[in-house]
Design a protein around this nucleic acid. Structure first.
Length: 309
DNA sequence: AAACCGGGGTC
DNA sequence: GACCCAGGTTT
C-alpha cells in the first residue's frame, strides 16, 4: 500500500466519521475523562446499546472517581446489573480508588499511567489517553483489527489473536502528528473503530456504502470468505461456570445476604451439579464478588454481596 | 499462547 | 443454534 493510498484511506474514513458518527454521550465535549474511562471499561466485550443506560446511571450516581471510590461495593455490583464480567465493576472501583489516592482524583493523562490502573490494559489505556486527552496513541480493538485486516491485508477476518505483525501494521498506519499534534491521529482511531462497528462488521459488511470500498484489498481480492484459522472459536455458554456464577450473582443482586444453601439449591440450572455450584460459589468469594459468613457447608453459612455480611 | 470470565442480540 | 461484541488477567 503506497503512502498516497494510505492518505486517501485516512481522509475518506475521517470524512465519513464526521457525518456518520453516532452521538454517544461519552463522545460529547462536556464528557469528563472519568466518563470516558467508565465507558471504555463497560464497553469491554459489551455492545453499545446495552452499555448506554448503565453508563447514564453510573455517571449520575458517581460523577467523579472519588464518588465511585467511596461507594458501597454492593451498590457497585447492583448498578452494574447484568452488563457481564462483574469483576470489571470491582476493578473499575479499584481504579477509581487509585486515581483518588495516587492521582489527586484526576484521571491520568498518559497511557503509561493509565495502564498501571486495575482493569486497564493496552487497549483501554490507549483509548482513554486518545479519546479523553487527545494523545496520539495507537488504539487497536477488535473493530480496528478487522478493518485493517480487510482494507490493508486483504483478509476476511483478523483471526483470534492480536499478533506482532498486526501491532506493527497499526503503528505504520497512524497519521503523522508533527503538524497537528495528534488531532488527525485521534480522529483516525475513532473513525476506524466506528467504521468497523457500523459498516465493516464481522458478519455482513455493508460494502455498498463503505467510503473505502474501492480501496479495499479484501474487495479487490473478490471478498473471499474467512478461512478456518481466521474464525474465532465461539465460547460455550450452556453448562459453563460462567453461567452458574452469573446465576448466583443474579440472586445476590436481588437479595443479600442470603442462606448459601438456599442460593445453591434455588438455581434454575438443572444441569449444574452440586459440585459445580459449590465450586462457583467459592470462586465468587475468592474473586471478591461475594462474601461469606459462617462455616462453608454448614447450615448457618450465609452469602452476600461484599459489605452485606 | 491459551484459558478463564457474562449475557444478550442477531442472522 | 452459531456467531459476535470499544478486553484484561492469570497461568
Amino acid at each position: 500500500m503506497t503512502k498516497a493510498m494510505t492518505d486517501a484511506v485516512h481522509q475518506r474514513v475521517i470524512d465519513w466519521f464526521s457525518e456518520a458518527a453516532r452521538d454517544l454521550p461519552w463522545r460529547r465535549p462536556e464528557c469528563t475523562p472519568w466518563g470516558v474511562l467508565v465507558s471504555e471499561i463497560m464497553l469491554q466485550q459489551t455492545p453499545v446499546v446495552r452499555v448506554l443506560p448503565r453508563w447514564e446511571l453510573w455517571m449520575q450516581r458517581w460523577p467523579t472517581p472519588a464518588d465511585c471510590a467511596a461507594a458501597d461495593p454492593a451498590e457497585i455490583l447492583t448498578v452494574w446489573d447484568r452488563l457481564g464480567y462483574p469483576r470489571r465493576a470491582l476493578r473499575l472501583q479499584s481504579a477509581a480508588a487509585a486515581i483518588t489516592s495516587q492521582h489527586g482524583g484526576e484521571v491520568p493523562q498518559n497511557a503509561e499511567e493509565l495502564r498501571a490502573l486495575p482493569g486497564i490494559g493496552e487497549y483501554t489505556a490507549a483509548a482513554v489517553a486518545c479519546f479523553a486527552f487527545g494523545a496520539p496513541e495507537v488504539v487497536v480493538d477488535t473493530n480496528i483489527r478487522r478493518v485493517h485486516a480487510r482494507v490493508f491485508s486483504g483478509a476476511a477476518l483478523p483471526g483470534p489473536t492480536y499478533t506482532a505483525a498486526q501491532r506493527r501494521l497499526a503503528h505504520e498506519l497512524m497519521p503523522a502528528t508533527h503538524d497537528d499534534g495528534g488531532v488527525r491521529a485521534c480522529a483516525w482511531n475513532a473513525a476506524t473503530m466506528e467504521l468497523g462497528a457500523l459498516i465493516c462488521t464481522a458478519r455482513s459488511p455493508q460494502c455498498a456504502i463503505c467510503p473505502v470500498a474501492d480501496l479495499c484489498a479484501w474487495r479487490a481480492a473478490g471478498s473471499p470468505p474467512p478461512t478456518d484459522s481466521q474464525r474465532t472459536r465461539g465460547q460455550a455458554w450452556q453448562g459453563t461456570d460462567r453461567q452458574v456464577r452469573g446465576a448466583i450473582m443474579a440472586v445476590l443482586r436481588q437479595r443479600s445476604p442470603v442462606a448459601a444453601a438456599a442460593v445453591l439449591e434455588g438455581l434454575d440450572l438443572p444441569e449444574a451439579s452440586a459440585d459445580q455450584r459449590r465450586r462457583c460459589l467459592d470462586s465468587l468469594v475468592a474473586d471478591g464478588l461475594a462474601v461469606r459468613a459462617g462455616e462453608p457447608g454448614s447450615a448457618v453459612e450465609q452469602i452476600g454481596l461484599p459489605g452485606t455480611v
